[in-house]
């Protein structure tokens, strides 16, 4: 039976929230198409209890494959086999990094159409149509598929939700997959290394976030002072660019490969507002941006945009917020 196959990423015994979102979305679409949603889990000895949990999100069957975790190409082998053997028409992925790599490899393997950064999927004449924002989110383009379709969601685009019959668990079927020779040529040495201090930003009401515009690691000391001036429940966050540069801990990173937050205030200093950053913070109640480039994408989705040099503005802002608090 044609259907929709998803990839469910798991780590340390729990499924990835975006993968559960993809399973939820796939089961919703499958119902509309009159078909079923299935999932693939890949890993060393994935327990039944874990795999079958996907049933609660609407997967009727889970294909379990024994293969290395955390790398894309073994999953391409697994999903290509499952899709070919079972006739799935579509593969759906939640946002993340592996989904991009697996989806792309799968498109090549199956000569399928692939669309990434998808924010919504509709059913039209019994086929899936994917919506993708393009050109810095200034337009939306629709994708239709001639043959098999690979749909890679944007981070947080698909919300996870337990289905009505949430008690139901999926049947788990073990599949033997022979890995392609090239899939065995990459080996995970260490996975999920946390670089920098283990800061906690998820509970903060006020987040002061810094990017490459800070110019140097020390710029974060000023942002910490600004956060402190707000007092109470405030913290400092960062973009991938500065985390990769070692200026701030990974635990404070917002975005596609970092955290998703929705504080009362998100104040972004020296951040351009790339899509991969935006997806992690766009649900914030109030967004304030300080950037010297009036064309920076972040101004497209800020509530208050300040065009200017953060080096001039932030120190004075610290004093002004302190004064306000004191007064």
């Amino acid at each position: 039976m044609p259907g929709i196959l998803t990839f469910a990423l798991h780590y340390e015994g729990a499924f990835n929230k975006n993968s559960l979102g993809a399973v939820t979305e796939a089961s919703k679409l499958a119902r509309e198409l009159g078909t079923e949603a299935h999932a693939v889990v890949v890993g060393e000895n994935v327990p039944d209890e874990l795999a079958s949990q996907l049933g609660a999100y609407g997967a009727s069957k889970v294909f379990r494959v024994q293969a290395p975790e955390g790398l894309a190409q073994p999953v391409v082998d697994a999903m290509a086999k499952v899709m070919t053997d079972n006739g799935h028409d579509y593969a759906l992925f939640g946002g993340g990094l592996l989904g991009f790599e697996i989806g792309a490899g799968l498109a090549a393997r199956l000569n399928a159409g692939v669309t990434m950064e998808v924010t919504a999927v509709d059913v039209e004449d019994g086929r899936l149509v994917a919506q993708r924002p393009i050109l810095g989110d200034s337009a939306i383009s629709e994708s239709r598929y001639r043959g098999k379709g690979i749909i890679i969601g944007r981070l947080n685009a698909f919300e996870m939700q337990q289905s009505a019959d949430a008690g139901s668990s999926a049947t788990v079927e073990d599949v033997q997959v022979e890995l392609s020779p090239w899939s065995t040529k990459a080996r995970m040495v260490t996975r999920g290394e946390q670089r920098g201090a283990d800061v906690d930003i998820e509970g903060a009401d006020i987040l002061i976030a810094g990017g490459r515009g800070l110019g140097k690691a020390e710029g974060f000391e000023t942002l910490e002072q600004l956060a402190a001036s707000f007092g109470g429940n405030s913290a400092v966050a960062a973009t991938r660019a500065v985390v990769d540069a070692g200026w701030y801990p990974y635990a404070a990173q917002i975005g596609q490969t970092g955290k998703t937050v929705a504080p009362k205030l998100y104040l972004a200093a020296g951040i351009s507002g790339a899509i991969q950053h935006k997806v992690g913070m766009q649900a914030s109640e109030n967004i304030v941006a300080i950037n010297k480039d009036s064309n920076a994408p972040i101004f497209e989705f800020s509530d208050l945009g300040v065009v200017g040099d953060l080096n001039k503005i932030v120190p004075k802002l610290i004093d002004a917020v302190k004064a306000k608090k004191g007064g």
Partner: peptide, 9 residues
């Protein structure tokens, strides 16, 4: 950097 931190491969 991937979903759960830095990977070395």
């Amino acid at each position: 950097q991937a979903e759960y931190g830095y990977d070395t491969v």
